[in-house]
Design a protein around this nucleic acid. Structure first.
Length: 885
RNA sequence: GCGAGGGUAGCCAAGCGGCCAACGGCGGCGGACUCAAGAUCCGCUCUCGUAGGAGUUCGUGGGUUCGAUUCCCUCCCCUCGCACCA
């Protein structure tokens, strides 16, 4: 047999053209509840990489599978087409972002076609077109109407390289580097537009529990990101400045509060800085919120502890962050590590007020106070030194104190911040706002949308700032001369709702057709990289909820099932341009074809796992397809005329087994297992053809099953083979094969055959039989199956007694007693086997495998055809074996 | 530090209460085919064993159970995310 392969280029082009002519991937608007399969749309960088190929092969294979199962399928593709790289590329190449982007899209669409991805291109969405981004602007204005847009001064993350602000999510790691260019991020204060995602913090958090189709890791990352914490907010009176609210999760430690601390940019700190040089010096120069050391300066003021009435010193400290809690906190050095460090440094009191709960605590005795002079005790415990609260456990004390203190109330604190969407860049959606001297910022009215981007100006700053003519406009409210907002939107706005646009991509009246979206959404299966675990997936959930509340969408979550696909690596390392270890999909497609690339990837590992690209693996996959084609061609050229005998029955059963298992695996998206089974079936078919003249009908059924089981992953070659087998029409539209038996029977039959073959091998080996002459396989007598069934169902203490009540078992005498004892011994572990007739048939049809292996005739016989002495080894699920040498 | 997910035979990797000495792949060994090689096919690959047997294994140490790779606890190690968060 050769490993020559086949003419993949011709085959793939032929079927791509045929699909195209027949428009097979089109999803008409009038289908009912299609299965919505979606891969995260790519940024059009100009080149498909292996990550894309893997991502989109997964969705394509699943979409094809669902289609063959009879579903209508929505499987669209589009372009996340705004973004900074286009601007940089335009500058480098002396062109403009628009032309560059469309060139890239063109190339990538061709590459996707060459991969055989079956998209409904009539639903293509491109975010950089005014037809798309006008709806970003429209949504901005709707969000604004609903009070979900805010403009405020903010300290923002500024990337000096990209010359734009970044969302918190776009700043990476401790070193605070820009996610795009790895430049250290700086802080700037700018007027920014925010979407108030925090309004939805509770729902975004709580609904995560119901996202059962999502990986736990992603769910947990979102929970952490939202970071809700319950605690208590209460007031400390600061002399001369009135009441100051502080948030704490540990109000139970309030008797140990020995100082009070304010953030450097707290209003009181700023006021104090105006009056006091030392405080000003600290606020303006010394404060280092990023440093490890807690620094601070005494204000000379005191604050009144609302519970004890004690006056405690007030500090301005850089470890207090203005955007956490209220920007002011009560510090308890005895029970908080950071407060402890600060107190030690400034020689402040450290008072223990919580003791570890004694192991044998009775619930009331007040334990001894722990020593906290060296180290804070941060766990919950029992209150001490806390007047009437001493002796309470932390939990109860928190409740009680929050109730008792007049200014105290339960409060929640979130880590999630509002989403700053302003970007000082050109290639994005213009924020539809006009600044008027009299009216302030005014949102552009709906009928004037879209605010289109002006022509690109190659400049160092924001090109929109340089577009003088474009900037000059009139105020929509008072008509006075006004200027346009020059910031554009974060591109995550685009991707927060694109999955809705696919439903009605050309609609001119609204971003999406609400009725159809209600029918078609949510996305049934979403697939993409883990890097979007927080940002894109959280923003999309937020948008979906807002649209549900205000635009009539009947779904509150966009994605039912989420698959975070693993990386394609090379020798255990992530492929990257800088490392120079990139395998180009283009080259693989040219050399081996798209089917090989797809098949190799899908069989290499489960979709969510990382796996290593292997040139050798690719070659062997290619060889597999070539040999399969040869097998089909041989069959068609010279149709065999074998009998429908026991061997054919074996092959037939294997076909069913393969279909049954592969189907279940396709449902789970574990393509690797489905494909392994399918390849095993090909091997079985080849063995069959080698061993005997195959029964044509059975053989063809097997080939046709293989072709269809393979077709979601290797669609071109599947069409080619189906064509060779004389199938009229496209495999894409063919019915998924059906198995005639159930999984349980499949597994029992396979196990029986496998165990029997193994036993024969062992006997031959251990007994040192060189050349077996004759092999008998003896199925157990029927009464043993009955006894087994009784043993499984019975819960009587004395199993033997129970068995002996059956006359046909009792008649077996010693044999019955002996088998009964075996059953009794393994009683808890027994399970039902196939029946005697089924076992006989299964072994009969598998006998050829043993004959072939040992080159000796095999007879499968029933119990009543042999001597009793032989029968003692025969049990249900385990025939007796007699070998003559 | 907090949270999540992991640690399985030479390697990768399934299993997640009994059919588990543990699917599958790679590597290695033997055989068939071949002039030969490659490809393909058939076995073997923890230890011992002349009729299908026995023994010791699934990070560590305990526990629950008639029975644990599978459940619970301790500890060690790895990966990922978050982190001066009050």
């Amino acid at each position: 047999m050769s490993d020559a392969g086949y003419d993949h280029a011709t085959v793939e082009r032929r079927w791509q053209a045929a699909w195209d002519d027949a428009d097979v991937y089109r999803t008409p608007d009038d289908v009912d509840e299609p299965t919505y399969v979606l891969g995260m749309y790519p940024y059009p960088s100009g080149k498909l990489h292996m990550g894309h190929v893997r991502n989109y092969t997964i969705t394509d294979a699943y979409a094809r599978y669902r289609r063959m199962r009879g579903d209508d399928v929505l499987h669209p593709m589009g372009w996340d087409a705004f973004g900074l790289p286009a601007e940089n590329a335009a500058k480098d190449r002396d062109t403009n972002p628009r032309d560059w982007t469309f060139d890239c899209i063109e190339t990538m669409r061709d590459q996707m076609d060459a991969m055989g991805f079956g998209y409904d291109w009539e639903r293509e969405v491109t975010t950089c077109t005014p037809e798309y981004y006008r709806w970003n602007q429209w949504l901005f204005s709707r969000f604004h109407d609903e009070g979900l847009v805010e403009r405020r001064d903010a300290d923002v993350n500024w990337c000096p390289e990209c010359e734009t602000v970044l969302a918190d999510e776009q700043v990476e790691g401790e070193a605070e580097l820009c996610w795009r260019c790895d430049t250290p991020v700086e802080q700037r204060e700018l007027e920014q537009w925010f979407l108030k995602i925090t309004e939805y913090a509770d729902e975004l958090l709580e609904a995560i529990d119901d996202l059962e189709g999502w990986p736990n890791s992603v769910r947990q990352m979102q929970r952490n990101w939202i970071g809700r914490q319950y605690g208590t907010e209460l007031e400390f009176a600061v002399e001369g400045h009135g009441s100051v609210r502080a948030f704490t999760t540990r109000v139970d430690t309030i008797f140990g509060a020995t100082f009070f601390a304010l953030a450097p940019d707290h209003p009181i700190s700023e006021k104090l800085a105006e009056e006091d040089d030392e405080i000003r010096r600290f606020v303006e120069h010394e404060a280092d919120p990023d440093g490890d050391e807690p620094n601070g300066v005494a204000t000379g003021l005191t604050a009144t502890n609302p519970v004890t009435g004690d006056e405690i010193p007030v500090y301005v400290a850089d470890f207090v962050l203005s955007d956490v809690g209220t920007g002011a906190l009560m510090a308890v050095p005895g029970h908080d590590e950071r407060d402890h460090a600060f107190a030690t440094k400034h020689d402040l009191d450290i008072v223990p007020v919580i003791a570890p709960e004694p192991g044998d605590w009775d619930g009331e005795t007040i334990p001894d106070a722990p020593d906290v002079s060296e180290e804070a005790f941060t766990d919950d415990g029992v209150l001490v030194n806390s007047e009437e609260y001493s002796g309470l456990d932390s939990e109860t004390a928190r409740e009680r104190l929050t109730e008792d203190v007049e200014s105290a109330e339960h409060a929640a604190q979130y880590q999630l911040r509002d989403w700053g969407i302003s970007r000082q860049r050109y290639w994005g959606t213009p924020i539809p706002v006009v600044h008027c001297d009299d009216c302030g910022p005014v949102v552009v009215p709906e009928e004037e949308l879209p605010v289109e981007l002006p022509a690109f100006i190659n400049t160092t700053g924001n090109p929109l700032d340089a577009a003088e003519e474009w900037k000059r406009t009139s105020c929509p409210e008072c008509g006075a001369t006004a200027t346009r907002e020059t910031d554009t939107m974060d591109t995550f706005v685009d991707s927060s709702w694109y999955f809705l646009r696919y439903v009605s991509p050309a609609l001119e009246e609204a971003p999406f057709d609400v009725d159809r979206a209600n029918d078609w959404m949510p996305v049934d299966q979403y697939v993409g990289g883990i890097e979007h675990a927080v940002m894109h997936l959280l923003y999309s959930r937020f948008f979906t909820k807002v649209l549900a509340d205000h635009e009539g969408l009947e779904h509150r979550e966009p994605f039912t099932n989420l698959l975070a696909q693993g990386m394609v690596q090379l020798e255990g390392e992530k492929m990257s341009k800088s490392k120079g270890n990139v395998v180009s999909p283009q080259r693989i497609v040219e050399e081996y074809g798209a089917d090989t690339a797809r098949l190799f990837m899908m069989q290499a590992a489960q979709p969510e796992r990382d796996f290593d690209w292997s040139e050798e693996g690719v070659r062997s996959t290619y060889a597999f397809l070539g040999r399969l084609k040869e097998l089909v061609d041989d069959f068609v050229r010279d149709e065999p005329a074998g009998e429908n005998d026991a061997v054919a029955a074996y092959v037939d059963a294997e076909i069913d087994a393969t279909i049954d298992i592969a189907t279940a695996e396709y449902d789970d998206l574990t393509f690797n297992t489905a494909l392994r089974e399918t390849q095993d079936l090909v091997r079985t078919l080849r063995q069959y053809a080698d061993y005997a003249e195959p029964h044509a009908e059975t053989f063809e059924r097997g080939l046709w099953a293989v072709v269809r089981l393979l077709s979601p992953v290797a669609p071109h070659v599947a069409e080619e083979l189906a064509d060779a087998l004389g199938y009229d029409g496209f495999v894409v539209d063919a019915d998924w094969p059906e198995a005639k038996i159930d999984r349980d029977a499949v597994e029992k039959r396979r196990k029986l055959v496998e165990n029997t073959r193994e036993d024969v091998r062992q006997i031959v080996d251990v007994a040192g039989i060189d050349d077996p002459q004759d092999i008998d396989v003896v199925v157990a007598p029927e009464w043993k199956y009955d006894a087994l069934e009784i043993a499984i169902e019975s819960d009587a203490d004395n199993l033997i007694g129970e068995l002996m009540q059956e006359s046909h078992i009792r008649e077996q005498g010693d044999a019955a007693a002996s088998y009964g004892q075996d059953l009794q011994a393994e009683r808890e572990a027994l399970s039902m086997t196939l029946g005697p007739g089924e076992e006989h048939a299964a072994l009969e049809s598998a006998a050829w495998l043993i004959e072939r292996e040992f080159d000796a005739p095999v007879s499968v016989v029933r119990a009543d055809e042999v001597d009793e002495s032989v029968l003692k080894n025969a049990e249900p699920g385990r025939p007796a074996i007699e070998i003559e040498d």
